[in-house]
Amino acid sequence: MKMSISLLINGETYQVNVPHKKTLLDVLREDLALTGTKKGCDSGECGACTVLMDGKPVNSCIVLAVDAVGKQITTIEGIGGITELDPIQEALVAHGAIQCGYCTPGIVMTAKALLDSNPHPTESQVREGITGNLCRCTGYVKIVEAIMDVSRR
């Protein structure tokens, strides 16, 4: 059974016809070609699929698309592009906090929400803030340094 819904993503309204069971993550990637949001574990563990819902980070792999109706969704595509990087993205690049990059969109979204609600976090608040974003490459030190760097600007 499909349902026609409209989703508000990065300030734009998208009309899609989706099965009730389909997650927001799959609709973003498969129906809307917004593939910046990654699929890691598909079960709420890794944070690769992090998007903002009404400004708060959530795992889009455990949110039904139909449940996201009426919410403001922000994905990595709504944050910054190649020509105008968000300060968080700039800092991650500058600190060498990206290796394979698979976790990066999720990290950017989480860091964005963290700094929006708390512009000058302590290092332990940053570490606590990214506990839901697994990175298999960097060892987190550079990611934490990059976020701290942005918070000092």
Binding site: G47, V58, G129, T131, G132
Partner: peptide
């Protein structure tokens, strides 16, 4: 409980 993302849901 869980992670910041899980706690928001």
């Amino acid at each position: 409980l869980g992670t910041p993302q899980v706690r928001n849901l």
